[in-house]
Simulated assay, not measured.
Amino acid sequence: MGKGDAKKKEPAGKGKGKQAAGASDEGAKDKGASKGGKGDKLGTCNFVKARHILCEKQGKITEVYQKLQEGWLDSGDKVPPAEFGKLAMQYSECPSGKRGGDLGWFPRGKMAGPFQEVAFSTAIGATSPAFKSTHGYHIVLCEGRRG
């Protein structure tokens, strides 16, 4: 088992073009780094800690985002996680809303499409604009990155 792992790691650093089709994780990291545009750290981390607010209706998530703008974002402040959590408990339609929208640490590849893209490209401490996924409308607060 150890030898197989070593073989997988070695080629990834050498020929990205040859390995891209067979190594989906490395391909995702490379794409994330190029899409992030704000530096490699956003696109290459393996784990992110985030909170979110999920609403089925666009009007409801717009209302929540306006509250965030009026309270913090318009003045250039970052939304404190505790305050974001209060809004998540009040408005989020996701079971995580009971925990203030806290999703904890999750790896790249666990969340679907646009949610993962936003969670992994939002700067630490920043709040994303509202966006749509297959589950509804979200706002994400990135709390940390690692790996």
Rank of each mutant, 00 (worst) to 15 (best):
L87W: 07
K78F: 08
Q90C: 09
K49H: 15
Y65C: 04
A12N: 12
E63P: 00
Y91G: 08
R108Y: 03
G71F: 03
Q19A: 15
G15D: 15
Y65V: 01
A50K: 01
E10L: 10
A12P: 02
G125T: 06
K14R: 09
G15R: 13
E117N: 11
G136S: 04
T127R: 08
Q58C: 03
E26P: 03
T62D: 15
G101N: 01
S24K: 15
K14Q: 11
E26Y: 07
S121D: 09
A20V: 06
G32P: 09
A88K: 03
G109F: 03
D102C: 05
S92E: 12
K9D: 06
S96Y: 12
D77N: 14
L103K: 09
C94N: 15
L103M: 10
M111S: 14
R99I: 00
A88P: 05
V79A: 07
A50G: 07
G36E: 09
Y65Q: 07
H135E: 13
K132W: 00
E63V: 01
E56D: 14
S96G: 02
D25K: 06
G43I: 06
V118P: 06
R51G: 04
K57G: 05
N46P: 00
A21T: 11
P129L: 10
S96Q: 14
D74W: 01
T44F: 10
G136Y: 06
C94R: 01
F84Y: 09
G76E: 03
C45Y: 02
K78I: 00
G101M: 02
E56Q: 12
L103V: 02
Y91D: 00
D30A: 08
H138Q: 12
K49P: 00
D40I: 05
I124N: 12
G125R: 03
K14V: 14
K16R: 05
G36F: 01
F115R: 00
S34Q: 11
G37F: 02
I53T: 12
L54D: 02
T62F: 11
S121A: 13
E117K: 06
G100P: 05
Q19K: 08
M111N: 05
L54V: 05
A119K: 02
G101H: 05
K57L: 11
G22F: 03
E26L: 13
D102S: 07
